[in-house]
Design a protein around this nucleic acid. Structure first.
Length: 784
DNA sequence: AATGTTAGAGTTTTT
DNA sequence: CTCTAACATT
């Protein structure tokens, strides 16, 4: 299959085909698409048609003959975005998508490392560790080297290692100041050695090793620099240090013959600093590449102007911005509605009633008021824990809903078990997989046997698999039988197709049998069946053009760069590791959408509820003490607001149940940062706190609506907050302004007190750990 | 090996 | 409060 590109063919209506591509674009979009082949930065506001510009740019470059598919590298963060780009692209042009490198950072790095596994010093069958695998690998290592898990929790070690890799640092590059960090670096070193021995890489390693190969291998680097004439990056504001460095390797230094970089992003929507994203990469890029073309896409096609005004007004309170203002030709639309409730429960109740009303109006089809479908209603919250009370209310009202997040398909235990078997077929040295299934289903290999094996492997400095033959006694017999079983399976699966391989495995591993005897195993078996289907559809349609190395040829895949082959099984395992799958496909039921604000990025809905707009929650208490943290919270709020097309609700609650304790929250400072003219305060007048205890239902059943003035509300705090906390017990002496010592946080100053009796809490500012709320009945405080 | 108990932690997350 | 992992018991 070959399509000529860059050859203009006349269209039926006589228009030039590249002009056709530009149809319907506004001036800025069009300018961005048709920029000359120079480095460029596109500042694309929310809802400004970012993806469209990106894909049309590629289509335009191809159609005007400036580049062939092989010369294009387009990189995104999520598989969803990559898929979207390819779908749209093939809708615009009859282009051979296979030759293009379009994918996620990790997907492309994987493709690169599969092609150059030898140079990258990896086994051809290297496996990819996800977070769970990584953690269990580190736990294993900590046990083996008798690391004190109190002082060095495996999770922390994991974050440390991931953080180093995001910054492009190997153990030798890490600054060692104190004994603790020396130990961490040591663990990083041991972890690296273990991964190398076992032939596995984690997500960070995919990036780092690709980067290093490009950096250190001149012919490889030059090859790819010559090849990729156009490098396009989506969500550039979310790139970390290493990802930017990787891009620089591919693009080469400025003003040399490397490709051009077309970066698209929005600094106002940078919400992933906590996982290493550096907004600063945008400014660095402009400086380092002397970017001459910067285009702002500020026309918003999504929301009415009350919503956009709110977003603009809010984000204007951030100091560190490149600067951008969204505008629309649509009218003001409805006001942004703000609601205050006495309890989180009442907040959820009110929300459900409001939804019912909206859906009723939508059914009647009377104009812009209602919403026709439940899936056009989204509930956003700052943290996952908030979903429970909302779910309860929705459930009680029999309102179908869907919660985003949680376990994805390939992360389920039973699926991971099956995949572990498959991985052992490919790479028997993968100890993480070995450990996962050596005794699952149970086959009499207990802790003692495994210890024996681990001791032997450590003595020999080899993976578990290679140490099995040295074992004696019962342990030796059982484990040898296990390894033999895997070996037989490997034999039997030769020449089988992927479906047959998995079916054989499910049968011979005893997984299905095991779950059959389990009380609640039916779901798991269903999922295992689904795994067969997933493999089937992967082979028949999905995948081969994307993260897999190459095209299927006679059932095998040939890497166009090296001629190496990759089996369908290997490709499927890669697919499973890099695309953890949808979290739940929930059978097409039209349902209200529940998700965190983070998860909502990139989505849009007719109607959006942003809930829990309270100090300590949103902005979150862990982020609001340093300036950068607060700015990121504000960007998060900006993202949340700009999800709404027509109607936006912001709600907060005076009290909220968190970690089993009632918290008294004041409303979010973000309310102060919204334009009064766009708001409508719809809190019932009698939503006094006292109602909470009497009857939480009355507050919303017959509300009296009124437009409230923000200033008046702000100056009249709820009575509870003013009530002087009375405390008994060991911490009764705690008063505002007092210096205290906490065993974990060190010295701090008491800022305020609230609550009564067992609920009494002190807000304490710890210079080293920030602001904390401490329950006086629990916290061990000492007066300084 | 299965089942029961307890301690501890609990922003945000894709690959 | 609620979930999980580690530990303890049968």
């Amino acid at each position: 299959m070959h399509f000529p590109t860059g050859v203009d063919t006349p269209t039926p209506d006589g228009a030039h085909p590249s002009a056709l591509l530009l149809q319907g674009l506004n001036d800025e979009q069009s300018a961005a698409v048709t920029l000359p082949a120079d480095h460029a930065l596109i500042l694309a506001g929310a809802g400004s048609g970012k993806t469209r510009v990106l894909t049309t740019r590629i289509a335009w470059l191809l159609q005007t003959g400036q580049v062939s598919p092989g010369g294009v590298l387009a990189v995104t963060f999520t598989n969803k975005a990559a898929k979207e780009m390819l779908t749209r692209l093939s809708g615009m042009l009859p282009v051979n998508v296979r030759g293009m490198w379009v994918g996620t950072f990790h997907g492309l790095c994987n493709r690169f490392l599969r092609a150059h596994w030898k140079l990258a010093n990896l086994p051809q069958t290297f496996q990819i560790l996800d977070i769970q695998d990584q953690l269990s690998a580190i736990k294993r290592l900590s046990k083996q080297f008798q690391v004190d898990e109190e002082r060095f929790p495996p999770k922390q070690t994991m974050w440390f290692i991931a953080g180093c890799k995001e910054d492009g640092l190997r153990p030798k590059d890490v600054d060692v100041r104190d004994p603790d960090s020396r130990k961490k670096v040591e663990l990083y070193e041991l972890y690296e050695a273990q991964c190398q021995r076992e032939g596995v890489v984690d997500f960070g390693e995919l990036m780092l090793r690709s980067y290093e190969l490009l950096r250190d291998n001149d012919p490889i680097r030059e090859h790819y620099r010559r090849r990729f004439r156009h490098i396009l990056i989506d969500e550039f504001q979310d790139t970390n240090k290493l990802q930017y460095a990787w891009i620089k390797q591919l693009a080469g230094p400025v003003a040399q013959d490397g490709g051009t970089v077309f970066a698209v992003g929005d600094d106002d929507q940078s919400i992933y600093a906590f996982r290493g994203a550096r907004v600063g990469n945008m400014a660095d890029f402009v400086r380092e590449y002397q970017v001459q073309h910067q285009i702002k896409l500020e026309q918003n096609y999504r929301s009415f102007s009350n919503i956009l005004d709110s977003a603009n007004h809010l984000i204007d309170h951030n100091k560190n911005r490149l600067g951008k203002n969204l505008h629309t030709t649509q009218g003001a639309g409805e006001p942004v509605r703000i609601y205050e409730s006495p309890t989180d429960f009442a907040e959820a109740q009110w929300m459900v009633e409001e939804m019912k009303q909206l859906l009723r109006e939508g059914q009647n089809g009377d104009g812009t008021q209602g919403v026709a479908h439940r899936h056009e209603i989204a509930v956003l919250y700052r943290s996952n824990a908030q979903s429970r009370v909302i779910e309860t209310a929705l459930f009680n009202a029999a309102m179908p809903y869907r919660v985003y997040g949680g376990l994805r398909f390939f992360e389920r235990a039973e699926i991971k078990h099956a995949l572990a078997y498959l991985r052992l077929l490919e790479n028997p040295w993968d100890d993480t997989s070995f450990m996962r299934v050596v005794n699952f289903p149970p086959r009499g290999i207990g802790a003692r046997s495994i210890e024996q094996l681990q001791d032997a492997a450590r003595a020999l400095g080899c993976p578990l698999h290679d140490a099995v033959s040295t074992l004696t006694g019962k342990a030796g017999v059982n484990i040898t039988a296990f390894v033999a079983k895997i070996d037989v399976l490997r034999e039997q699966t030769q020449g089988q197709n992927l479906r047959q391989i998995i079916e054989l495995l499910l049968d011979h591993s005893g997984l299905v049998e095991h779950y059959q005897s389990e009380r609640e195993g039916a779901d798991r078996i269903e999922n295992l069946t689904e795994l067969v289907n997933a493999a089937e559809s992967f082979v028949t349609q999905e995948g081969f053009g994307r993260d897999a190395v190459a095209m299927p040829v006679n059932g095998e895949m040939i890497n166009p760069d090296t001629g190496e082959t990759l089996s369908p099984l290997a490709a499927f395992l890669t697919h499973a590791a890099l695309e953890s799958g949808d979290n739940q496909a929930q059978a097409g039921q039209d349902a209200v959408q529940l998700m965190t604000v983070h998860a909502s990025k990139g989505l849009e809905f007719d109607c959006v509820f942003i809930t829990g707009m309270e100090e300590g929650l949103f902005p979150h208490e862990n982020s609001m003490n340093d300036y950068d943290g607060l700015e990121e919270e504000r960007r998060l709020m900006y993202v949340a607001i700009t999800r709404a097309r027509r109607r936006l609700y912001l709600s907060h609650s005076q009290t909220r149940m968190l970690h089993g304790q009632t918290r008294y929250n004041i409303k979010s400072r973000f309310f102060d940062e919204l334009p009064e003219h766009a708001l409508k305060w719809i809190t019932p007048a009698r939503s006094a706190f006292a109602d909470t205890h009497a009857s939480p239902h009355n507050a919303w059943q017959q509300p009296t609506w009124f437009n409230n003035d923000w200033q008046t509300k702000a100056s009249a705090p709820t009575p509870v907050l003013q009530r002087a906390p009375t405390t008994s017990g060991p911490n009764a002496w705690v008063r505002s302004g007092v210096q205290v010592f906490h065993t974990k946080f060190g010295e701090g100053t008491v800022i305020g007190l609230e609550g009564v009796g067992d609920d009494a809490r002190a807000q304490v500012n710890f210079p080293r750990h920030g602001m904390k709320w401490l329950a006086l009945s629990v916290a061990k405080l000492r007066q300084v």
